[in-house]
Amino acid sequence: MSVFAALGTLLTRLADCLAPLFGASATAAAIVLFTLCVRAALHPLARAAARGEKARAALAPKMAELNRRHKRDPERLRRAMAELYEKELVSPVAGCLPMLLQLPVFFVMYHVFSTGSGAGDLLDHTLAGAPLGGRWGGDLTGPHGPVYLALFALIAAVATWTYLRARKAAADARPVGAGMAAGAAKVLPLLSFGTLVTAAVVPLAAGLYLATSTTWTAVERALLHRTVRVEGAKGGARSSG
């Protein structure tokens, strides 16, 4: 059985279980439930990423000093940063793992509802009347407009919240980010709106996956950062004691 057929079978079985509660929208509910299960499985990596972000923030003064010392020699600066990360046992890419590991899942979801490969009759299923295999046609006033309007509104709200948090984090880390790093810090927060553009061109099922996943990410990051701050405060209190 191909991975596309496996996903189609799984969604069909989940939809059958959820049909008594959600009726014709059971497959859409199955996609949401499937997405939540994927994100729950990746939660340990997200926790590690949050701790990694805190560790990188603690290195900010040292990174700023390296940047000041080697700002005229980018290659020397790169090596010095790599050595610092290795010495402090901090990975500069740990925060990207949860996102990267989701890409294959999103691709499979996109492929199933774009081509119908392994989908069975899933393409005939709907969310409030809008076909899960259909795409937004650029019109929010048509019969399926309210479904896409709600989807885009949710993604836009999450993207805006993520953008504001990312801007604040970039501002807090500004002493470290001279040169290219500062430019990246200004651009990266805008990437949160890329999800909105993607949702407008992919099948509704894939857009539903994106909306669920980005909402989970926003809530998860807020809770994890709060937990990490509390743990850090308790650790500091024990050290001073």
Rank of each mutant, 00 (worst) to 15 (best):
P175C: 12
G177M: 15
G177S: 15
G177P: 13
G177L: 14
A178I: 07
A178S: 14
G179R: 04
M180Y: 09
A181F: 10
A181K: 09
A181E: 15
A182I: 11
A182H: 10
A185K: 08
A185D: 12
K186Q: 09
K186Y: 02
K186W: 05
V187D: 00
V187F: 02
L188D: 05
L188P: 03
L188M: 11
P189H: 02
L190H: 01
L190M: 01
L191E: 03
S192K: 06
S192R: 00
G194L: 03
G194R: 00
G194S: 08
L196H: 02
L196V: 00
V197H: 10
T198F: 13
T198P: 07
A199I: 08
A199Q: 04
A199E: 07
A200E: 04
A200R: 06
A200W: 03
A200D: 07
V201R: 13
V202M: 04
V202E: 06
V202Q: 01
V202H: 02
L204R: 01
A206W: 01
A206E: 02
A206S: 06
L208E: 01
Y209W: 06
L210E: 00
A211L: 01
T212D: 05
S213R: 01
T214F: 07
T214L: 12
T214N: 10
T215K: 08
T215V: 09
T215Q: 08
T215L: 14
W216V: 06
T217H: 04
A218L: 07
V219H: 08
E220Y: 07
R221Y: 10
R221L: 08
R221S: 08
A222K: 13
A222R: 15
L223K: 11
L223N: 09
L223W: 12
H225F: 10
H225Y: 12
R226A: 13
T227C: 15
R229W: 09
V230E: 12
V230C: 11
V230A: 15
V230P: 09
E231D: 14
E231P: 13
E231W: 15
E231M: 13
G232D: 02
A233R: 15
K234Y: 14
G235P: 09
G235D: 11
G235Q: 15
G235C: 09
G236K: 15
G236D: 15
